[in-house]
Simulated assay, not measured.
Amino acid sequence: MIDRSHIGREFGAHTADIEKGRLRFFAKATGETNPIYFDEEAAKAAGLPTLPAPPTFLFSMDMEVPDPFEILSVMDVDLGKILHGTQEFNYFKDVYAGDRISFKSEITDIFDKKGGALEFIVKKTEATNQHGDLVAEMTRTIVVRNG
């Protein structure tokens, strides 16, 4: 069983610069076809200041840390036993190329089902921009298969 004392544990904040090339690459990789994600002139014609971040892009930026699985190693969870459970996003402000986004994460819950055969780790991440504005909250649930 995962030690429930990890609930409330915070993980070191990190910052990522949002670059045009990364936005275009992510949009292409996720099958986006709207030109506002590729062409800066199309974005400006749509009333945007520059290329916007596609949906779910911030999740990939949150993973760009030296050890993206630190939360699991701290809890002594075997990577071979995990599954991606859920991913939720709440957006408050748009993110654009040129923004600098800071990420701060916390374990908000750990619970089990099926008599402990499955354990769930809930990680909440807040993303703020260079002005200190909350731009998004992301909640990820990781499933750990036991036994």
Rank of each mutant, 00 (worst) to 15 (best):
I2R: 04
S5R: 12
R9C: 08
E10T: 14
A13R: 13
A13P: 12
T15K: 08
T15M: 09
I18G: 04
E19R: 15
K20N: 13
L23V: 15
R24E: 11
F26E: 10
A29R: 06
T30Q: 09
T30N: 06
T30A: 04
G31N: 08
G31H: 08
G31Y: 01
N34T: 11
P35C: 02
P35F: 01
P35G: 04
P35M: 00
I36G: 05
F38T: 04
F38W: 04
E40T: 09
E40W: 00
A42G: 01
A45S: 05
A45I: 02
T50P: 05
T50Q: 00
L51D: 02
L51H: 01
P52E: 09
P55T: 02
P55I: 11
T56W: 07
T56M: 11
T56R: 03
F57T: 12
F57E: 04
L58Q: 01
F59V: 15
F59G: 00
F59I: 13
F59K: 01
F59C: 11
M63I: 13
M63S: 15
V65A: 03
P66F: 00
D67I: 05
P68E: 13
P68H: 09
F69W: 12
F69H: 14
V74H: 07
M75E: 08
M75Q: 12
D76K: 14
D76Q: 13
L79W: 06
L79G: 01
K81D: 08
K81L: 11
I82N: 05
H84I: 07
H84M: 15
G85I: 10
G85C: 05
T86R: 14
T86P: 02
T86W: 06
E88N: 11
F89M: 03
D94E: 13
V95T: 12
G98K: 07
D99W: 06
D99Q: 01
I101C: 02
F103D: 03
S105W: 00
E106N: 10
I107L: 12
T108I: 15
T108Q: 02
T108L: 02
T108F: 06
D109P: 08
D109W: 05
D109Q: 11
I110K: 02
F111Q: 07
K113V: 05
G115N: 14
G116N: 03
E119P: 03
F120D: 00
I121W: 02
I121F: 04
V122M: 11
V122G: 00
K123S: 15
K124Q: 13
K124C: 05
T125F: 00
T125I: 13
E126N: 09
A127W: 06
T128F: 03
T128L: 10
T128R: 13
N129V: 06
N129M: 09
H131E: 15
G132C: 08
G132S: 03
L134N: 02
A136K: 02
E137W: 03
M138Y: 10
M138E: 03
T139C: 06
T139Y: 07
R140G: 11
R140W: 05
R140C: 11
I142K: 00
V143C: 01
V144G: 01
V144W: 01
V144A: 02
G147D: 15
G147W: 13
